[in-house]
Design a protein around this nucleic acid. Structure first.
Lengths: 254, 254
DNA sequence: GAAGTCCGATTGTCCGGACATAAGCATTGA
DNA sequence: TCAATGCTTATGTCCGGACAATCGGACTTC
């Protein structure tokens, strides 16, 4: 009794363009990822061994391995010695990214609106100075924004940035997200330290967000670093929990 | 005028043991990581070029690159073409891991206590069935636990697991965390989908956690998958925000 | 029939080399 | 003075091969 429905080895037509400046391993990994996304490579199916795949594409095994490894790192594939490489069948979409609220909302199809409440330069408090690694009392940008979706307030964002890094234009801040501005200014974001908690709204917070005093709020503090390790942003955000929650995917790295 | 305090190229004594079964690249990456942790490799310092490093250790360049790359993936190093490999100087400690509350607490030096409130098998509700990918009404484990630290309730954990995967012993559940039990049972955790939010405590929740009704609670829902993509656990947790918050590190993967 | 053993398949590790590409610096030129 | 050019240096990409470790199934043996 044949069981052709379990873990078939899929034959898909792959090809690489050697004249392209795009690295070969990247061309391959993109095609494989597309095949997985598209459903051509079904979950649980075997990818066929590396050697043969390399021969078929006219590539070397290290190149093919590099392509496959990048997808393993993304959590899309699982390799098992003596078995082969399998497509993981789960709802894994994207690993957690360092994304901004603005991008999140835009990706969700909502057209986010931003109202800049404050855009000024202030002396750094002890807390801000510690987070940004600058001297207490030195000048830092202070930006307060209200993020709205469907006309309703959704989050109150208060950010601090070192001066001299970026020009903070109020109009641009209302048109796009802070992260996008920073990237456009040539800052390469590298890592962030986040803390998510909850607390009751103060009277002022309730007022700003259209909630009542004592209502539960979701809070997030984040310090973002660029690739030299400098802190480039520190922010304390409060969200209306009925309108927003943090959703993300985690991967185990053994 | 010499400026020896900026980005020196560090000479450290590294060595590999070729008779060890531990992969060479792993030996090297561990030594480098230890040197960074220990402060021998100071933030901002250059690592010296790969070729020379390989020659000094009697390794090939690919092996050295593999070691360095693993640390780049961890966010400890940054490579720049034409410049070299630098130690990132930031407070980056660990990337976000798929960890259990139990492990978190233990790592923080607190001795967590667990009280199992419910450990039974129930028919799956629509919500649980959807999360675990089983038929509605089919049997699933239901475990309710209260996690305490310093004798104070800290979180209320309600988990659902498919039957047949693992034997859930109440005593073991009180002695250690659920993830540790699953790993011990041969389940290799792979990824998880998490959602963190907040809401006001109901009367029952307040009672359990020693809060008052309407107090803000931090909530987390998580579905965990093993490496075949099967959902192996679904849980809804509520935390006392005065006692617990989620802290983690993010890395940008371009 | 059950246990242990062997073997093929497949990934894991490692080598030594080659050329391309980008960044930084010094030199050169207008 | 400042911009363009070229050199040096380092990482980025790629090759083709070799052997080891592990998994799973088939085979053998008791």
């Amino acid at each position: 009794m044949p069981k052709p429905d379990v873990d078939p080895t899929v034959q898909l037509d792959l090809s690489v363009d050697r004249s392209s400046p795009v690295p070969l391993y990247f061309q391959l990994s993109q095609q494989l990822e597309a095949a997985i996304e598209h459903g051509t490579l079904t979950p649980g199916s075997l990818l066929g061994n590396e050697i043969e795949l390399a021969a078929r594409l006219g590539l070397s095994r290290p190149t093919v391995r590099q392509a496959i490894q990048s997808l393993v790192d993304k959590g899309l594939l699982v390799r098992r010695r003596g078995v082969g490489t399998q497509v993981v069948h789960s709802q894994v979409k994207r690993p957690l990214e360092l994304s901004s609220l603005y991008d999140d909302l835009e990706a969700a199809g909502q057209r986010p609106a931003t109202k800049v409440l404050v855009n000024t330069v202030v002396p750094a408090s002890a807390e801000v100075a510690a987070a940004l690694g600058v001297a207490e009392g030195s000048d830092v940008h202070r930006v307060e924004r209200l993020r709205l979706a469907h006309g309703e307030p959704m989050a109150y964002l208060c950010n601090f940035l070192p001066t001299g890094l970026i020009e903070l234009d109020t109009e641009q801040l209302e048109a796009t997200g802070l992260y996008r501005l920073m990237r456009a200014a040539g800052i390469t974001l590298h890592s962030a330290r986040q803390s998510i908690g909850a607390r009751a709204a103060t009277a002022a917070e309730a007022e700003r967000l259209g909630e009542s005093e004592g209502a539960p709020l979701l809070t997030m503090q984040r310090t973002t670093f660029d690739d030299t390790g400098r802190a480039v942003e520190y922010g304390t955000h409060t969200y209306r929990p009925t309108r927003y929650s943090f959703e993300f995917q985690l991967l185990v790295r053994p």
